[in-house]
Simulated assay, not measured.
Amino acid sequence: MKKAIRIFSLLLIATTIMIACKKDKDPASTDLFVGTYKGSVSYTKDGNTITSSDGKVTVSKVGDTYSFFFGNNIPDITGVKFEKSGDNSYVSIGNGLTGIKIDASTLKMLVSKEGATWTADCTR
């Protein structure tokens, strides 16, 4: 009986530690934003505009930077870093790559860089 109580106690302690550690995890470190968002996207450069109301943006992460891959012949945006803005929401930081707000279900973008402008209003 003592052995059963000891095993049960150890299991209870281990479970408590695992649950406590899960709560401390930063959402950005779990690749929460990686995946495909769908919605309206556009790209403008030199007076030429590409627009799609059923576009998609695929987000990937390498190290501490994110990349945004568009369909519809829209150039990709790479090397984006984020900082936390509220609960589980992040905004882009860095030179020329500001204007992106992302969370687990929504991607909003208005980026102007080198004479080009990208927009996205997407969900997943």
Rank of each mutant, 00 (worst) to 15 (best):
K2P: 06
K3I: 15
A4P: 04
F8Y: 02
F8E: 14
F8R: 08
L10E: 08
L11N: 03
A14Q: 06
A14W: 00
T15N: 15
T15C: 13
I17C: 11
I17E: 08
M18P: 10
I19P: 05
I19K: 07
I19R: 00
C21L: 15
K23I: 13
K23D: 00
K25M: 11
K25C: 08
K25P: 08
D26V: 11
P27Y: 09
A28H: 02
S29G: 08
S29P: 10
T30A: 12
F33P: 01
V34Q: 09
V34A: 11
G35D: 08
T36H: 09
Y37V: 00
Y37L: 00
K38N: 13
K38C: 01
G39R: 06
G39C: 09
V41N: 05
Y43R: 00
T44E: 15
T44F: 09
T44V: 14
T44L: 14
D46P: 05
G47K: 04
N48Y: 12
T49N: 07
I50T: 13
T51V: 07
T51E: 13
S52I: 11
S53V: 15
S53E: 15
G55E: 06
K56P: 07
V57P: 02
V57W: 01
T58C: 03
T58R: 06
T58N: 07
T58W: 08
V59F: 12
S60D: 13
K61H: 07
K61R: 04
G63F: 05
D64I: 01
T65N: 01
T65H: 09
F70R: 13
F70L: 00
N73E: 14
P75V: 04
P75R: 00
P75W: 03
I77T: 10
I77C: 06
T78Q: 08
T78I: 05
G79D: 01
E83W: 07
K84A: 14
S85N: 13
D87Q: 10
N88H: 07
N88G: 04
S89P: 02
S89Y: 00
V91L: 09
G94M: 05
G94D: 02
N95M: 03
N95W: 05
L97Y: 12
T98A: 10
I102E: 07
I102F: 03
S105A: 11
K108N: 15
K108Q: 14
K108E: 15
L110H: 11
K113W: 02
K113F: 06
G115K: 10
G115F: 04
A116I: 12
T117A: 09
W118K: 01
W118H: 10
W118F: 05
A120C: 10
A120D: 04
A120L: 10
D121T: 05
C122Y: 04
C122P: 00
R124D: 09
R124C: 08
